[in-house]
Design a protein around this nucleic acid. Sequence first.
DNA 1: TGCATATTGTCCGCCGAGCAGACAAACGCA
DNA 2: TGCGTTTGTCTGCTCGGCGGACAATATGCA
Lengths: 407, 407
Amino acid sequence: MVRRPHQEPVRVAGRGTPRAINRQILLNLVRAWQPVSRADLARHMGSRRGAVSLIVNDLIAEGILFEGATGESPRGRKPKFLYIDSRKRTVIAVDVRPTQTYTMVTSLLTEPIVGVSSFPTQADPVRFVRTLAARLRRLMEDHKELGQCEGIGLVVPGMVDREGASISFAPRLGWRQFPLRDLLAKATGLPVHIENSGRACAIAQAWGVRREAGRSSDFVFLSVSDGLGVGIVVNGEVLRGRHNVAGEFGHVPLAGEGPPCACGATGCWEAYVSNLATLSRYFGRNLSPRKPIPAEIASFSVDDLVARARGGDSKAVSALHSTAHYLGLGLASVVNAVDPERIFISGEIIAAWDLIETTLRQALATRVLAPAASGIEITTIPLPEHPRLRGAAALVTAPLFAVPKVG
Amino acid sequence: MVRRPHQEPVRVAGRGTPRAINRQILLNLVRAWQPVSRADLARHMGSRRGAVSLIVNDLIAEGILFEGATGESPRGRKPKFLYIDSRKRTVIAVDVRPTQTYTMVTSLLTEPIVGVSSFPTQADPVRFVRTLAARLRRLMEDHKELGQCEGIGLVVPGMVDREGASISFAPRLGWRQFPLRDLLAKATGLPVHIENSGRACAIAQAWGVRREAGRSSDFVFLSVSDGLGVGIVVNGEVLRGRHNVAGEFGHVPLAGEGPPCACGATGCWEAYVSNLATLSRYFGRNLSPRKPIPAEIASFSVDDLVARARGGDSKAVSALHSTAHYLGLGLASVVNAVDPERIFISGEIIAAWDLIETTLRQALATRVLAPAASGIEITTIPLPEHPRLRGAAALVTAPLFAVPKVG
DNA sequence: TGCATATTGTCCGCCGAGCAGACAAACGCA
DNA sequence: TGCGTTTGTCTGCTCGGCGGACAATATGCA
């Protein structure tokens, strides 16, 4: 007879489980449909108005929801509208990139409150944490009126361990095995969530879908900038894998030989489609992320390249098309692997989407297996929406809305 | 105001939800730990013996569990052991392969009851269904003593649509858009579940894990035979994707050019590692699955090849090593994509596992990104366990044990 | 043999929470 | 003003887990 059979990893349903589940479902419905009345919620949930009222009034008492103005109704009593109470509850979002680090303060719904500011990313991670913590403390001092900060979400271009405690390897930052979470949490006194940037973008996209009936639960998020971030959502959950490196297609070889990559290998997808690779093709020089970049190129951005392409510079157009071609080839592997419903793409190069979409789709079609998949829906996320910073914010907010797991 | 807001895709928790959840959890625990007492179950679930007793007694009344002999206990009252009642409840498993179709009758726990029998697979799917249905009806007639049949699980080497209603494309069978499920269901009067063979193997493996604490919830199942079946489990669920073709790595190109594949393309992974490809290398001839196979080769199997390799035939050894090499290369793509905890492999070639493991792992290590992943655990499933037929049976049984989804 | 202890399975009262329906409040419209 | 409609609340009911008591059963020891 087994007296103490391991621990109990099994999560059974208790007396309060229905309430816990419905409370989170209700929160998500308010988020998706606000402003919304209790009666509407009851209809959405296929539940009784009485049951909804009890939960709603609890949430109002806790300061999570609040009752706004009474709304309009064609006839009958007017409903009292409900909203997520995102006053006094904020989130700090941090986007660490090779040269600059960006910060933003958002509401609980990842809407910007305090705009983006930035500072140079230091190469030494310990010094970086000191600088970042000092800046965040000052940010909180300067905006005391914003109230309680729920936590810090931080995204990095690299691999994060499964516990979300430390950065295991960030090639373009040169950081290895660095316990960022606990250091930053101690320095700021706030809970910290860290994640790979591509995956965070995917989380934000999966979480942030507004009032969509058939929530897109299988998609791929591609973030093209200094590097290549890929996030994959399957069955409504991000792909993580055993070591939290699943879906890291950025360093999958696109061809046997190819340009050198920051990770040390050659021919990685990232090495073909990063901003540096695109510029490298335009300037006809073999720029490597591992070597210093000439000043005249460092001051030239993909935005400038797109401007020149629109101005008729045929070399610029061809550099963009070349990148689009490789984006399509790499995407084909992803599409074949996970068969997503749609693809989201963000990055500087998206400014030239009308120029490159056809090329990208052609390359995609040559390698995709299921013929139906070549016409897959591709949605671009414009840079002003700051997808990575929204992703960082979502790291903090998404767990607050997560429905508890059972089984 | 929205009167009828779409349908209600949201599954809220009701009064009976805790019971429904705990009932399924309990069923899974009995399956994993039987024989097991009520008190043990209560400990596993972190719940009260009273609550467990109520559920158990319900299940006994429904004939799903039964009370066996009283067990032993160091001291105190002796427990009454519980079992899944798999008497009188059977499942029919069908494995359709290019040349032969295999059938088996199993218990609710996918244990064989009536051994494997087979008949030639007809090329015309309509005639095939007629033949299969007739054989299954006779099977049920001959074994009336087995009681109620819960359903038919059928696996095919090809793509099945997301609803599980029809075969969208099975290259090696030459079937397209064939509504197999409803035809077979009407012809036999039983519920029918169909699925791709690799994915079904993965489902069986995810479902069948016995009394494992940290149930392997991220793994890859590789079935190497006439073709290549791949099934991927992520977060405890099989990867399906939008069109139910996710994880079909069999037809991902391993190299630009390569041997012809049944799917029409060239250089597919499957074309490098199928049994025919292995034999093709041994005989030094370009055998294609699209052309008739010479009689002297058709009568020669991979089992024979393995026997010759063990007998010292160096050409046989080299053919096996070559296949192992390509298996490793293709597996690297899968490992990079989904970062599994472990890999399961089945197929005729597994009989030579001691000869080929090193070669396979070396090839895997050359292309895998995370260094930790190259030492990934690989488990072989011997052919006598009939992994595909167990997969087919699991298609019927797994839903009976599935914990209801909420959210 | 008699008593303490340990373990299993059952039973009873309690309470949290969803379900059903009634009802007042609020509003438009004729 | 009266009627119909919609919203939000309230009250009783039932389901089902929680906590603890209790009988049944077995062992060990005085």
